[in-house]
């Protein structure tokens, strides 16, 4: 008997929800999506969702587990759970330094959410906030990320931790890729742009609004047309 799919309380425009969708797609885990009317309905602050997550945020993952339902409300924990279940390579090799570096980036990703994500919500959906301050801390985080990815490139490594993707990349990618939505340009960060391209080229990659797929890779432009026209 197959166990039912984990349920993701999801919003199509949320980069944090997208992290979970992307990780699941890369790991081959099927999620049951439960759309949440975040905007304009503010459903995440309603009684049903507050009962699941008193913090009033999404995503929320409800996964059937041996001890009853496992309820996860932090996107980093959701990524680790999905990777542990179906794609353990996304957790790294298990060497102490590598595991610690992954944790370092998972924690760092929360800064991206607060800064670049805050600027995006302000610019796009009218959420209140100090836009100049949010952008400044977002740019500071991007500069750190650019420096780290540049060092990785010198080592010949395309991803944040090693030469293969881990949950660290999935945790950091969405808010970085959507920084322009909050008025923060990525033009100044060539290493970040190469890294984003590497993430978008992963087998099983899925898009979200504002993050487009690599059109030059899919579909194959050299594929023969299905029908010949006279």
């Amino acid at each position: 008997m197959t166990s039912p799919s984990p349920v993701l309380y999801d919003y199509i425009l949320s980069p944090s929800c997208y992290k979970a969708r992307l990780m699941a797609a890369l790991a081959g885990v099927r999620l049951a999506l439960r759309p949440v009317d975040f905007h304009p309905g503010v459903e995440h602050r309603g009684p049903e969702l507050l009962a699941l997550n008193p913090a009033g945020s999404i995503p929320i993952l409800v996964a059937p587990d041996a001890d009853g339902d496992l309820i996860l409300t932090e996107s980093a924990a959701i990524l680790v759970y999905l990777a542990s279940k179906a794609a353990p390579a996304f957790l790294g090799s298990g060497k102490p330094a590598e595991s610690a570096r992954i944790q370092q980036w998972l924690a760092f990703s929360a800064r991206l959410t607060a800064s670049l994500g805050g600027a995006r919500l302000h610019e796009m959906l009218h959420r209140p906030g100090d836009l100049a301050g949010l952008r400044a801390s977002g740019i500071a985080a991007l500069r750190e990320l650019e420096a780290a990815l540049f060092e990785q490139r010198l080592k010949g490594e395309a991803f944040l931790v090693g030469n293969r993707p881990t949950v660290a990349d999935i945790a950091c990618f969405p808010y970085v890729a959507l920084a322009p939505d909050g008025g923060v340009s990525l033009d100044a960060y060539p290493s970040i742009r190469l890294w984003m391209r590497a993430v978008r080229a992963l087998e099983g990659f899925i898009e979200m609004p504002g993050i487009h797929r690599l059109h030059e890779l899919k579909p194959d432009p050299h594929e023969a047309p299905a029908t010949a026209e006279a």
């Binding site: 919003y11 199509i12 425009l13 949440v36 009317d37 905007h39 309905g41 609004p209 504002g210 487009h212």
Partner: peptide, 19 residues
């Protein structure tokens, strides 16, 4: 289709245009 799905579909389309 549930209302939220209808809203999300249209928001998804429009946000693909925004950038």
């Amino acid at each position: 289709t549930p209302m939220t799905d209808l809203i999300h579909f249209q928001q998804m389309i429009f946000l693909q245009d925004r950038s």
